[in-house]
Amino acid sequence: MKLAVTSQGTSLASPLDPRFGRCEHFVIIDADTEEFEAFSNESVMASGGAGSQSAQFLANKDVEAVVTGNVGPNAAMALEAAGIKVYRMGSGTVKDALDAFRAGTLEAISGPTVGSHHGMGGRRRGGRR
C-alpha cells in the first residue's frame, strides 16, 4: 500500500514536516517495497485551500494513509472523504515514520488537530485580508 509522509526534504532521512497542507514535500512510499518518490508541495504558496488541495493531490496518487503532524479542518474533512487514513507523529525522519507505521504504533486521528491557517507560519498576512 502507498503511504505518504509530510517531509522537509526529499529522502527517507529527511525530517518530518509537522504541517500537512503547507508541508514542503510529500514523500510517497510503497510500504511493502520501500520504494519511494518525493513531490514538492504545490500548495505551499496557495492563498487558501492548501489542506484540501494537498488531500486531492494524495488521492490522485492513490495514497491510502498519511503520516503528518497536524491537519486543519478542511484537510481533515477532505482526507476523510478521500478515504485516506491519518496518523500523527511529533518528530523524526521519514524512515522513522515508515517504521512506526509498519509497527502499528502511530496514533490514528480523525478530525482536525489545529484550526484554519495554522500552517501559514508567524508571517501574518497583512492582518485583514
Binding site: 500548495s43 496557495a46 492563498s47 487558501g48 485551500g49 492548501a50 484540501s52 488541495q53 488531500a55 486531492q56 488521492a59 478542511n74 474533512m77 477532505a78 472523504a81 478521500a82 478515504g83
Partner: peptide, 15 residues
C-alpha cells in the same frame, strides 16, 4: 483555482 471543489473516487465535495 481556489481548491474549493475536490473530486475523489467515492465522491465530489464542495468547500
Amino acid at each position: 483555482a481556489f481548491n474549493a471543489i475536490l473530486a475523489f473516487k467515492s465522491q465530489t465535495i464542495v468547500l
